[in-house]
Amino acid sequence: MNKTISTAGKPATLCHLRRVVAQIEGQDTDLSFDACTSTLGVPAIDRVLQGGLTKASLHEVAAAAWPDLGAAFGFTFALAARVAGRRHVLWIQTDFAALEGGAIYGPGADQFGLPASKLLIVKVPRPIDALWAMEEALKCRALSTAICELPNDGAVADLTATRRLTLAAREGGGFGFLLRHRPSPLTSSAETRWEIAAASSPPDGFGGLGHTTFAVSLVKNRRGPLGQWTVAWNHHERSFSALSFGMAQAAFDRLDRAPLARAG
């Protein structure tokens, strides 16, 4: 046990162990973990994520509180815009979620950095349909990102459902984002979990609004510590910039460390 703890911090050992686990689980081990990440462009966050967001996996984003819905949409959109390339992005929305938070607005998307022409939108009647569509979309190699938006805390996406989605994402190789309108207490198999709140933008010097700003907190990270940051999104350059650095917290919810922490 002690030995495991002492080596946990060494990336090389970790990488080796992950490969072993991947081999046991029958995954493709040709791709190294570093090659399938996409950076956020903020060194502090990328370091915590060990290179960036992992491809072919599921990530969760939730609005910290109800007025932060717009910010959570925006953060997810920004992540999708960064990784889109020339491929399409599929956005799945339940009817109720569209009623709550509005429908995606083309001109707004264009300006935000993700051209609306790259967007495919699926509106589904029930949350369970959204999961079905998400699984299909994640398996499709032609999409760079599939986003599934669920109203409230998205209780339908429980551990089993997210596990299915993770497997589908592994098959398709794209990014999967699960967007919940409220943080969920449910466990999930997502790689990372983010809680997003709106933050006051830095003043632009003319009394107007500054760059879109998010208060980002990473509340689950399977590959490293957690943290809180305030980042601004530059939609012209499609890049994040850090405004403040939060302290990284101990990763108590990491699956591999949780029992050790309890054991003391």
Partner: peptide, 9 residues
């Protein structure tokens, strides 16, 4: 500095 149109309508 902020987009002129909202992301969601």
């Amino acid at each position: 500095l902020t987009p002129a149109r909202p992301l969601r309508l």
